[in-house]
């Protein structure tokens, strides 16, 4: 009887763990097959263990160029979207003004729009304006769709901030600029960081919108897409695994840093 009772009590946890496994398994497969040495071009079946791909991660023509391009795009798009989005979020969270509801709607719409619609529309515009597709058109598109996510993240944080903290700073002789730099910005930082992180991930990972605005420029997701048609090189798995590991380590490091700082002080 005991195992049954235990199961009944922890059923939800069991399902939760299964879902977690479902989420993680593809990453494990990516990891596993990054050590594969496939016979043909298709890296679908396990053949034998090899670290070739890890030793020569840039051994595939064009892959590392596309990776560099994607990283560069992601950094620029993150900076652009974070700056614009943070300003917009402050205006929406801190002020009552005419057009606030409309602006909220404008911010909401890109998130409620399938990517394929946004990508095709922007692509049509560039095409008809005879603007050369390439790095800049991709960047414009990325900032456009990252912006709303930054606004949402920062706005939530700013709205939960106690306005009295800024008043206290003003009361303690901080000019508006000093108040912003010394109090507002440090307090809003977690929201801004979350928005920036999300922007980076979204920009780096985007395929659909990029494909409409890239012309002949090849970003990393576009490289993967192209290679999927004719057999994905093992190196793609290497990059995927490395990104996963780096991301997890960064987040863990951030967590540890945060908790150790809390303990010391």
């Amino acid at each position: 009887m005991r195992p049954i009772r235990w199961l009944r009590k922890n059923l939800v946890v069991v399902f939760g763990v299964l879902t977690l496994v479902y989420l993680i398994v593809p990453n494990l497969v990516v990891l596993l097959f990054s050590f594969n040495k496939p016979n043909g071009r298709y890296n679908y079946t396990w053949t034998r263990f090899s670290t070739d791909a890890w030793q020569h991660p840039c051994g595939v023509a064009g892959m590392c160029d596309s990776l560099t391009l994607s990283l560069k795009l992601a950094v620029y798009a993150t900076i652009g979207a974070t700056v614009l989005g943070t300003m917009t979020a402050f205006a929406l969270a801190r002020y009552r003004f005419r057009g606030r509801a409309t602006t909220n709607m404008l911010i909401f719409l890109p998130m409620a729009m399938p990517e394929v619609v946004m990508g095709a529309s922007l692509g049509t515009l560039f095409l008809n304006m005879r603007i050369q597709f390439g790095f800049w058109t991709i960047l414009i598109a990325h900032i456009m769709f990252c912006l709303s996510f930054v606004v949402v993240a920062v706005k939530a944080r700013v709205m939960s901030m106690d306005p009295r903290l800024e008043q206290a700073a003003q009361d303690l002789y901080a000019s508006p600029t000093q108040t912003f730099l010394r109090v507002t910005l440090p307090l809003a930082a977690p929201g801004i960081a979350a928005g920036a992180l999300l922007s980076f991930a979204l920009s780096f990972d985007d395929y659909i919108i990029t494909s409409f605005n890239a012309g002949n420029t090849v970003t990393f997701p576009m490289f993967v897409w192209g290679s999927a048609q004719r057999g994905t090189p093992v190196q793609v798995n290497v990059i995927g695994t490395a990104m996963f590991v780096i991301a997890v380590l960064l987040v863990l490091a951030g967590q540890l840093l945060g908790s150790s700082r809390r303990k010391v002080r």
Binding site: D162, R164, L165, Q167, A168, A169, Q170, D171, L172, Y173, A174, S175, P176, Q178, T179, V183, P186, L187, R265
Partner: peptide, 22 residues
Amino acid sequence: LPPYKRPVNTVFQNYALFPHLD
């Protein structure tokens, strides 16, 4: 005069201590 130019200081309700500073 704005608050930061007035020679008065306030003890706020719920204190409004800066959470990011010791």
